[in-house]
Design a protein around this nucleic acid. Structure first.
Lengths: 157, 157
DNA sequence: GATATTTGCTTGACCAATCAAGCTCCGGTT
DNA sequence: AACCGGAGCTTGATTGGTCAAGCAAATATC
């Protein structure tokens, strides 16, 4: 007698189903909503904010393009274009890398630092209001570990 | 004496911080990974899969464009373009709406249904392996409710 | 019942991302 | 020291989405 579950795998339970649907919606809605908040509030799109933020967290406010791209979850070319946008606004400057003349450092300017200072409360508020608020009473550390596991994708076969 | 928290709001706790970062990574990685699985496995991108799936869940395998767009988290024009792609593959057909001649129904063809049947185990496996697996032992229903709250975005001010 | 407004969808212009190709420079080989 | 393979970044072409404008059908108003 053939095993029907070979052709037709177990479907999701109702709880799994609703979790997956809800996550789908969050993945769609959250980044757009937070970006819209930032743009409406401070004229600073989320992608550009993220770049400035990552730069500000280094000791000398500078970083190589490939490292910054990884931290911003952007391709190298996407990063180049983002930095160009920031550069034309005077928020970032590019300097050739001392120890490797192929490389570039993106450097946060004073104007960029000021812009970031001005924008981060807005970002913080958006993250709290749109996301964290809904997880009061949860074990956040445990949740964070689960998401870290899910975020560490094994390559596709 | 001025209140310093007015100028400088409370930063996130370390647990909040890691949860937010991990969620950011998941939101970036998961859709791409699942899409890559589907394309590698069955040549069916996630957006197109989602459209077929939503159509298949209606009693008569057809739906108005605006309703389908909402279920796929797509703008109306994005939906139009997706349906056009599906139509050229013969997986969907468009019919003028009987009771309102402005409207169109996207209709799942037999070929489209077959394609969906062929693809869904792949999607299911990807969702389990890349996401659900990491939440064993969690209260999924409670988690789903929290995500539903977060996914229901209030408009930006 | 003609006209104005609104609704449902498509189309055009645009945008931010990607991938692939190109350019420059590094570093090991000979 | 000239070469060549590879690394670091940019540029060009494409893609999959958005928003705004357009068009046709429906509905409300007079």
């Amino acid at each position: 007698m053939p095993n029907p579950s070979a052709a037709t795998p177990q479907p999701l339970t109702p709880d799994e189903e609703s979790l997956v649907r809800a996550l789908g919606q969050v993945m769609h809605v959250l980044p757009r909503a937070i970006d819209a908040d930032m743009v409406g509030d401070r004229q600073l799109p989320l992608t550009e904010y993220t770049a400035l933020m990552n730069l500000s967290e280094t000791p000398d406010r500078r970083m190589r393009m490939n490292e910054l791209a990884a931290l911003c979850y952007l391709s190298l070319s996407g990063m180049t274009r983002t930095i160009i946008r920031l550069e034309t606004q005077g928020l970032v400057r590019r300097e050739r890398c001392e120890e490797d003349a192929r490389g570039w450092n993106a450097v946060l300017t004073d104007a960029g630092y000021a812009r970031l200072q001005e924008a981060w409360p807005s970002h913080l508020a958006a993250v709290r209001r749109r996301f964290l608020q809904h997880f009061e009473g949860f074990d956040l550390a445990q949740l964070a570990r689960a998401f870290q596991r899910a975020g560490t994708a094994e390559p596709t076969d």
